[in-house]
Amino acid sequence: MRAIHSLAAPQGPPPARPPLRRGTAAAPPLRGSSQPPPPPPASPRLASRRAALLALVLAAAPARPAPAAAAFSLGIPGPMELLREQKKKSASFLLAPIAASLDTLLKAQALLASPNASAEDAEEVRGRISAAGRDCVSRTGVEVCTFSLILKNAASLLTKKDPLKVEADTRLGELIQSFSDLGTVVENSNFELIGDREKMKDGLLSTISALDKFEQSVKDCLGV
């Protein structure tokens, strides 16, 4: 038998479908979801700009100083500076005995200069000179030299070789020696003799000068 051919044209393979285009828009959220859609990702160029801006800000920002550096920049004094300030504030207290001794010597000088000085005045001069010495001319070995204590306190922040302390130690030695010499002159002098009184006057002037120099050395140690 003859094969019966269909009148219909032979069917070829189905035409290829074009590929689907992916849109840049985000897919719509699912129904019933309460979360908002995520923001679109930043472009690489925008991210690069943000990184560069952040780097500039960090480079321009000043670095935080260390605690010690911050203290110096703010002018906060350190422990040594605070101690020096405290000593300056106590200067009037430390210098008070020196001022009192100077006043005592000047009164003794006035009594000695009087032409009508009596025996009682002579004893008062001896007592004033002894009091002005502040136990710095030791006779029993138990007295404490007030001037030495003053210098020890005033120069406590200085080293032994500091020029200010060396100078003050020298002035202290000269002052003590001056009081010692003056005491010897007074004990061996007769107030009724003009020559002896002149010796006592010279001794008083020398001791007053030594006391002035010592006071200035103490002020130098205190920084006042």
Results as ranks from 00 to 15, higher is better:
E120M: 10
A113M: 14
G133E: 03
L102K: 13
T146A: 03
S138Q: 03
G141H: 02
V125P: 09
L95N: 04
A119E: 08
D103F: 15
K107T: 12
A132L: 04
R126I: 11
C136H: 02
S114V: 08
G141F: 01
L94M: 12
R134S: 03
L94N: 08
L95E: 06
L112N: 12
L112G: 11
D103I: 13
F93D: 14
A110L: 10
L106M: 15
D121I: 05
L95P: 04
K107P: 08
T146I: 03
L94H: 09
L111F: 09
A119H: 08
E120H: 11
A132P: 04
E123K: 10
S114M: 06
S130M: 09
E120W: 11
C136P: 01
A96W: 13
L105M: 10
E124P: 05
A122V: 09
C145R: 00
R126P: 12
D103T: 15
R126A: 12
L94S: 10
A119I: 08
A131Y: 06
D103G: 10
L111Q: 11
R128K: 14
A132T: 04
Q109T: 10
D103R: 14
V137H: 00
G133N: 04
P97E: 07
D121W: 05
I129Y: 06
A96G: 15
L111N: 12
A113C: 12
A110C: 12
F147I: 02
D135A: 01
P115T: 08
V144H: 01
D121S: 07
L105G: 07
A131C: 06
S118Y: 06
R126K: 13
I129R: 05
A113W: 06
D135N: 03
A99I: 08
S138A: 04
D103M: 15
S138Y: 01
K107A: 15
A117M: 07
L105P: 13
G127Q: 12
L112T: 14
I98L: 10
E143L: 01
T140I: 01
A110Q: 14
S130G: 06
A113T: 10
R139P: 02
F93Q: 14
E143M: 00
R134A: 04
L95K: 05
S130C: 05
G133W: 00
C145H: 00
T146N: 02
E123C: 06
V144A: 00
G141Q: 02
F93V: 14
A122T: 10
C145S: 02
G127E: 15
C136E: 01
A108H: 09
V137W: 02
I98P: 04
N116T: 13
G133Q: 03
E124M: 13
P115M: 04
L112Q: 11
G127Y: 09
